[in-house]
Amino acid sequence: MIVPDSVDGALILSIIDFFLSIVMISGIGFILSLFPLFNRLGRVDEEKIKKGGH
């Protein structure tokens, strides 16, 4: 166990976890903000895809 089994440990765990979560999810948000760039690769023809579906 990395975090001590005490109220102080719980506090430290909470602070680290909460702020790291915000940082990590902001990172995911940043990556998602780049998603429109994928559209420069081209357009997917949905009708054509559906024809070959199973």
Binding site: V7, A10, L11, L13, S14, I15, D17, F18, S21, I22, M24, I25, S26, I28, G29, F30, L32, S33, F35
Partner: peptide, 19 residues
Amino acid sequence: PKLVVLGAAAHLGIFVALI
């Protein structure tokens, strides 16, 4: 994507309950 951060902000309850 800017609303994604709310997915972490709304989890303070986890840590209040933990403590």
